[in-house]
Amino acid sequence: MPAASLTSLVAQVRQCQLCQHALPHGVNPVIQIDPLARILIAGQAPGLAVHKSGIPFDDKSGDRLRDWLGIDKDTLYDPKQIAILPMGFCYPGKGKNGDLAPMKMCAQTWRQPLLNHLTDVKLTLLIGKYAQDYHLPNRQQTLTETVKDWRNLPSGIIALPHPSPRNNIWLAKNPWFAEDLLPVIKSTVQNILHA
């Protein structure tokens, strides 16, 4: 599809009001997309800090994510290199144990039309269970099992836990993630970006 079609689609996303009634802080879709992107970050949903700034991963999670990928802010925020499409584009609000789940209507309405424009993606990073469930619908594993089974995932897909500071306990319990998988992720990202 021509770039104008993507421009129109993104404009529709930015004007979306489908979930406004259920969002305590209102709508503010936060995405980053360009048809030239070679890496797709499929996250969960923006947190409150990102909702306020309108910049994806503009928080502590983003600091850790950049470290995991071995990239700087300029690279992360270059849409011609990296697309960022969470499962929900707006902050869903806070629940008892952290942020609420992404609004399902968002992915049902917008995800596939946007993904259709990403024809040059070489690596998809699935951050968290909601992204894993969407992109790997037939897997019957926990998040930890899916991340640990990275060698057996479809080519071009790597599953990650959420880089939130809330996951420090998970990271401490799973040292293989930093020892075995992070070097592979950094190397893969660098190879794609510098191809």
Rank of each mutant, 00 (worst) to 15 (best):
A3D: 15
L6V: 03
L9R: 08
L9M: 12
A11Y: 08
Q12R: 15
Q15V: 06
C16P: 01
L18I: 13
L18T: 06
C19D: 03
Q20A: 15
Q20G: 02
H21W: 11
P24A: 06
H25C: 09
V30N: 12
I31K: 03
D34S: 05
P35K: 01
L36D: 15
I39F: 03
P46Q: 01
P46R: 02
L48Y: 11
A49E: 13
G54H: 08
G54S: 10
I55V: 12
D67T: 10
L69G: 08
G70D: 03
I71A: 10
I84F: 14
P86G: 07
M87Q: 11
C90Q: 05
G95T: 00
G95A: 07
N97V: 08
D99N: 11
A101S: 09
P102V: 04
K104H: 09
Q108P: 01
T109R: 07
T109D: 01
R111E: 11
P113I: 02
L118W: 05
L118N: 09
V121G: 11
L123H: 12
L123Y: 13
D133F: 13
Y134N: 01
Y134A: 15
H135S: 12
R139F: 10
R139C: 09
Q140M: 11
T142P: 05
T144K: 12
T144R: 08
T146M: 05
K148Q: 14
W150D: 01
R151N: 13
L153T: 02
G156W: 03
G156H: 03
I157M: 12
H162C: 09
P163N: 04
S164P: 05
S164A: 09
R166S: 13
R166G: 08
R166V: 02
N168I: 00
N168L: 10
I169Y: 07
I169W: 04
W170G: 01
L171P: 00
L171M: 09
K173M: 07
K173E: 14
P175E: 06
A178E: 12
E179Y: 12
K186V: 03
T188N: 12
V189E: 14
N191I: 02
I192E: 15
L193H: 06
